[in-house]
Amino acid sequence: MNIVIRYVFKHRATGNIEIKIYSISQIEERSVQKLSPCFDETEYELISRDLCFDKEKGVFVGDLIYVTQWHGNYIASVEFGEYEQDGSGDEYPPSKCFGFYAKAVNPTITDEEGLEYEIVPDYLIQNSMLRLESYKCIGNIYQNPDLLEEAR
């Protein structure tokens, strides 16, 4: 298995965002400075280094995804690390897990009368990426920061 990493750089002079994707084997074959001029710290600032979850769909940690589930559709951010997984509907205490997971960006909505409604049940706010029925990447927060605002 070859691990894929997305590097997100910000050009210091212009503020432009540059994204470079490399596998570990590419990085091991040659120095990063030879892979891209973005690795020049005087010209570019590294703002994120993200692991790839799904190469086919181009989904990395830090991306926003549109999740289609039996209980409804919602927007989530892709995260990596420790999280609590509870698929029992609060019947059992949640399990501590480690890995890729989807975290619902806005699990509730408030209507015009001020009433709050649950879109994502509490026990599914953090859900293993492997357990999702269907999802698609809608963008990353580096090139589309407005996506995060729209989702809230």
Rank of each mutant, 00 (worst) to 15 (best):
Q33H: 13
Y66N: 14
V78N: 09
E56P: 00
S48R: 08
V59C: 15
I19M: 04
K34Y: 09
V32L: 14
E56Q: 12
C97M: 15
G87P: 03
R49V: 03
I47K: 00
G87L: 14
L64P: 09
D54L: 04
Y22L: 15
L64D: 04
K96L: 14
Q33D: 14
E82P: 01
Y92G: 01
E45A: 04
P93F: 10
G58I: 02
N73S: 15
R49E: 12
R30Q: 15
E79Q: 15
D86C: 10
D54V: 02
A76E: 09
I21H: 00
Y101G: 03
D40P: 03
E29K: 15
S48E: 12
T68K: 13
S77K: 14
V32C: 07
I19F: 01
V32N: 05
Q26C: 03
S36M: 01
Y101W: 06
H71Q: 13
E28G: 06
K96G: 10
Y22H: 14
L64F: 03
I19C: 05
S48C: 07
Y66H: 15
F80N: 14
D54P: 06
Y83K: 05
D40M: 03
S77Q: 14
G89M: 11
E29P: 01
F100K: 09
G89C: 11
S95P: 01
D50T: 02
F60W: 08
D63P: 08
Y66S: 15
Y44M: 02
Y22F: 15
A76S: 13
E43H: 04
N73F: 04
L51A: 11
I24S: 11
S95Q: 14
E41Y: 00
E91A: 13
Y22W: 15
E79R: 14
L35A: 06
F53Q: 07
L35C: 09
I17Q: 02
E82D: 12
E45N: 02
S25M: 04
I75G: 07
Y92F: 13
I65R: 08
E18L: 07
N16L: 04
P94I: 09
L46G: 08
I65C: 05
N16G: 05
V61H: 00
S23G: 13
K57L: 12
D40V: 00
G89E: 10
V67I: 14
V32Q: 11
F53R: 05
G89T: 08
F53Y: 15
K96W: 02
Y74C: 04
F98N: 12
C38L: 00
E28H: 07
I75R: 11
D63W: 05
S88E: 05
L35G: 09
N16Q: 12
G99H: 09
I21Q: 13
V61Q: 06
G89R: 09
G58C: 04
L46I: 08
S77V: 05
T42N: 13
S48K: 06
P37N: 07
C52K: 00
D86N: 15
S31I: 07
N73C: 14
E29Q: 11
G81T: 04
S36L: 00
K34C: 04
V59M: 10
F80Q: 10
V59S: 03
G99I: 08
E18P: 02
D54T: 02
G99C: 07
Y22P: 01
P94L: 10
Q85Y: 14
Q26R: 13
P37I: 03
V67S: 05
L46K: 02
S23V: 03
R30K: 13
K34L: 11
I65M: 08
C52G: 11
L51K: 06
